[in-house]
């Protein structure tokens, strides 16, 4: 891909983003941990083929919101979610929605790289296997290769696919986890501070990867780094004390935010 066409692709994507309907719509989302309320009536929509960054000081509820999007909060005791979240047109908290199916459509990458203590190959093939995405060994090999290639890890690991995934470096492990998420062909990928445990070089690689993944997936990323939000995202949402302060184009957010609190946070005056 040369420079011209890359720019063209970017432009096309941006166009698509602006035209796009919302991939996920969150309406009046509130979350309670036991008696404590962690989110207050958040209304936030996620656009298709867009990287949406969630920023805000620690404990502001951005990770909580992220985990609502594929119901990972279900695994926490005493956690209660109210409001309505839709994926395309399906209410994901509806009785009829199978949470397993939902998580296959909305994948997740965690803060700390968490490869399974299995081989690299098995780490990738785990998801496709449980969802029956491969008809035979050849299919599976293709899925594994394609996923690793998408995650930019193929050339680094193709000769040691059957070595343990835990033996990789931190950055490689995180890209393995991204490849693992990609392998089940989700529509949305959620990332919870995916670079917080990585060094700058590995971070740069993962950021580049996120940028490329945008073409095929809708991405929501929680980050503590303003620069990272500015680099990888097109839309940014700012949380504070469990409330959504502002949601806007990233460019506007970092140059001329509507809300004073956003300005203060971005300028480093609190948080």
């Amino acid at each position: 891909m040369n420079m011209m066409s890359e720019a063209a692709v970017e432009k096309a994507l941006d166009q698509k983003m602006n035209d796009a309907s919302y991939k996920m719509i969150g309406k009046d989302v509130s979350v309670y941990y036991g008696e404590k309320r962690a989110l207050f009536d958040v209304n936030l929509n996620v656009r298709e083929n867009t990287v949406t960054a969630l920023i805000g000081p620690s404990g502001c509820g951005k990770s909580t919101f992220l985990r609502c999007l594929n119901r990972m909060n279900d695994t926490i005791e005493n956690c209660r979610v109210t409001g309505r979240i839709t994926l395309d047109t399906d209410d994901i908290y509806d009785q009829n929605i199978d949470v397993v199916e939902l998580r296959a459509r909305v994948g997740m990458v965690f803060q700390k790289p968490n490869p399974f203590p299995k081989s690299i190959y098995e780490n990738i093939s785990y998801g496709p296997r449980i969802h029956g995405l491969a008809r035979n060994k050849t299919d599976m090999d293709q899925i594994v290769e394609a996923s690793l290639q998408r995650a930019g890890l193929w050339t680094e690991v193709k000769d040691r696919l059957h070595e343990s995934g835990t033996g990789l470096s931190g950055g490689q492990q995180q890209r393995l986890c991204i490849a693992r998420a990609v392998a089940v062909s989700p529509e949305v990928i959620l990332m919870d501070e995916p670079c917080s445990a990585l060094d700058p070089i590995a971070t740069a690689k993962v950021e580049e990867l996120i940028h490329e993944l945008r073409a095929n997936y809708t991405i929501v990323i929680v980050t503590h780094s303003m620069q990272q939000a500015a680099r990888v995202s097109q839309r940014t949402a700012m949380f504070h004390l469990g409330q959504l302060v502002e949601e806007n184009d990233t460019d506007k957010m970092f140059t001329n935010p509507d809300d004073q609190r956003t300005q203060d946070y971005i300028m480093g005056r609190f948080g």
Binding site: M72, V100, G107, M108, F110, N114, I130, V184
Partner: peptide, 13 residues
């Protein structure tokens, strides 16, 4: 717990 979350996050039961 990270391993559990990782697997559940991939849509495993």
């Amino acid at each position: 717990r990270a391993l559990r979350d990782g697997s559940l996050g991939l849509g495993a039961t």
